[in-house]
Computed example of a mutant assay.
Amino acid sequence: MLDVSDAVRAEIGEAEADRLLAGENAPGNYDCTSCRTPGHTSQERTSTVLFVGEETAVLAFAHATCIPSQVVTVSEDQLQGAVRTIAANEANGAAQVPAPSAAPSLAPATPIAPPAPAASPAPATAESGPRQAVLGVTCGQVLIQDSLYPAIVVEPTGPIARPGSEGPGDDFLPLLIEQGFMPVTDVARRPSPVAGWSVLLAMGQLHAILQPPPGPGGQPVAWWQAHQPLAVTDGYRMAAAKSHTVMVYAAPAGSIGQQPREDLLREALEKAAARGVLVAAAMPLAGT
């Protein structure tokens, strides 16, 4: 019932992978690293998820229906925080393994989680002259056709210039539309999917929004990555586990603002859509 992907097998080694599949090192009971609800490796399909930092690696487990087996690169600080959590709560079913020499780069949350700053803008929305705007992210659930979906709202702190541009203009939305995001005219309609993008929701927290790899055969890269994983509500995690999809909305600086409640966030999204300054895309959880 345990899934070990080729990427995870390559990092932990054939012998360790075989021991896991034989049940020798499998935890039995675990808390899903994505939705944080209980699971059991002998009763339901379970994914092995290897979190890799600079010096530490942590092997965790998730429902296969939540996320597939994969390698996830996170910062060493994030991983050490997870290790401390694991040590305090052995029931979550994660085990520390020797750090690999290298790992592929993978990076996926809602009532309202407060806005979180990005580590940096993605290459697709790169630099804004001498100053670099960051992407603020707010998580909340949106009602679409009588169903609640997890949503992420992305808004830069300032104008985003096209790479190589010297002008003062804001190319944030055009750059995203070129990547496959679509203008939103009605927030009550589900956004269209965008190829190659995904959202990393793991350890019960939002880690990153991923964009397609820069070249053939590469791994997805982080378009937005939190300095620290962003905690989300149980309702948000349940909605994500149910739909396996996150609705990602984006608007230029100053369009949405920091809204403290989901109803106010919805109102701000509708106003942005009415002004023609809102784009969106539906994204699967990372690796799906």
Rank of each mutant, 00 (worst) to 15 (best):
L2C: 00
D3V: 15
A10E: 12
A15M: 05
E16F: 10
D18M: 14
L21C: 02
P27C: 04
H40L: 05
V49R: 04
F51Q: 05
A62I: 03
A62D: 07
I67T: 11
S69V: 07
V72W: 01
T73R: 15
S75M: 12
D77P: 04
D77H: 11
T85K: 14
I86A: 15
A94Y: 07
V97Y: 11
A99P: 04
S105E: 08
A109F: 10
A109T: 14
A119T: 08
P123V: 07
A133S: 15
L135F: 10
P150R: 07
A151F: 05
V154K: 02
E155T: 06
E155V: 11
P159D: 07
G169T: 10
L175Y: 02
L176N: 00
F181I: 04
M182L: 15
V184E: 04
V184L: 04
T185P: 02
V187N: 00
S192V: 09
A195L: 12
V199S: 05
L200D: 13
A202E: 07
P214G: 12
P216L: 10
G217T: 07
G218N: 01
W223M: 11
G235C: 09
G235Y: 11
T245K: 06
A253K: 08
G257W: 02
G257R: 02
Q258P: 04
E262Q: 11
R266Q: 13
K271V: 14
A272F: 07
L278W: 05
P284I: 04
A286N: 10
G287F: 03
T288I: 09
